[in-house]
């Protein structure tokens, strides 16, 4: 099942299948990519903030990255374990 990172729930994991580019998200997108969010890389949503489940903490390339859900909206993940 393909889901945007912004829609994932705690415990979900999978490889990044697609990164949407548009000029609005370009600066944050480049930063995300520098931190390791590129196609084919496995990510796992390990924490959600209390109350609102936003921001989230995502494991990528061995480190833990915190971001707001909207910031992950252009990253599509092929979530494991869902058909």
């Amino acid at each position: 099942m393909k889901l945007r990172l912004s829609k994932m729930r705690k415990g979900m994991a999978g490889k990044i299948s697609f990164i949407e580019s548009n000029l609005d998200s370009a600066p944050i997108l480049v930063r995300l990519m520098e931190l390791g969010f590129i196609e084919g890389v496995r990510v796992e949503l390990v924490r959600e903030a209390p109350f609102t489940r936003d921001p989230i903490a995502v494991r990528v390339k061995g480190s833990l990255i915190a971001l707001r859900r909207e910031e992950g909206a252009s990253i599509e993940v092929d979530v494991e374990g869902y058909q």
Binding site: R31, L32, P55, A57, S63, L64, I65, A66, L67, R68
Partner: peptide, 9 residues
């Protein structure tokens, strides 16, 4: 502003 930051070990 973006939140985007590392949660270090």
């Amino acid at each position: 502003a973006n939140l985007l930051m590392e949660l270090p070990s």
